[in-house]
Amino acid sequence: MLRNVFWKSLRDRRRAFLWWTAGMFGYILLSASVYPFVEEQGEQLAPLLENMPKEMLALFGVDNPNAIFTAAGYLNSRTFGWVVPVVFSLYAAALGARALGGEEESGTMDLLLANPVTRRRLAGEKFIAVSVVVLGLSAVLLASLLIWSAIFGLGIAADFFAAACLGAALLGLVFGSLALALNGWGMSRGGAMGVVSGVAVGSFLLSSLGSLADWLEVRRRLSPFFYYSASKPLLAGFDAANLAVLAVTAVALAAIGVWGFTRRDVGVG
């Protein structure tokens, strides 16, 4: 796995990826094991929720209190409502900030760039590696959901799950590419991570609360979360247009980052 920058970058992530895999399985297992109780109590809780402020419900991705105690509704509001997108956004942002910034921070970039590899190629392969790792984690998520579904009979089609997992990965990659872009234009790894975390939280709030205020409604479309959640993949399956917006945004941001990296000075470790 040391043939080129791409394989080397994947190799660097494999140990951490195993932990993420374990964590992802664990989280889904936990969600699956508490779901029967949620379903049981749903009938009692639904009227309570109906009396809660809708702003609060919106924050947790709930727009129909009666629907959230079904398997799809539960997954949609809780798992895919905020846990999964937040995890993927932060994971991908960390990977994106680290792709080039990590080599610079640890002082290996000088040695690496002395090799006959163009900067464009180096940064491009790093981005592809980040994408593969993030998509890999979404495949792990998909596998654990399918196992859960098979055991408990959740009655959600496999391709609906796949659409949701792909959406989460692409959403994450938008933030990962943003981190790579900021770092590509000279921001430190930590700085890029901080800015992207802020942007991610802001766009999450914008998307989830945007439906409540007219003046925010239009601006929701600026938030990557909007394209992630608008299509409700667990209820409606693949939504090519929304997924494409995320994918194109991620690739465009990465390209801007790669371009910046070809132009700027590389820092000393």
Binding site: G107, T108, L111, R119, G269
Partner: peptide, 19 residues
């Protein structure tokens, strides 16, 4: 900036990190 040129250079930085 040409990789073909850098292929012919050996570089030992004063301060570097290793994997």
């Amino acid at each position: 900036s040409d990789p073909a040129i850098r292929r012919r250079i050996g570089y030992l930085p004063g301060d570097f990190g290793l994997y």
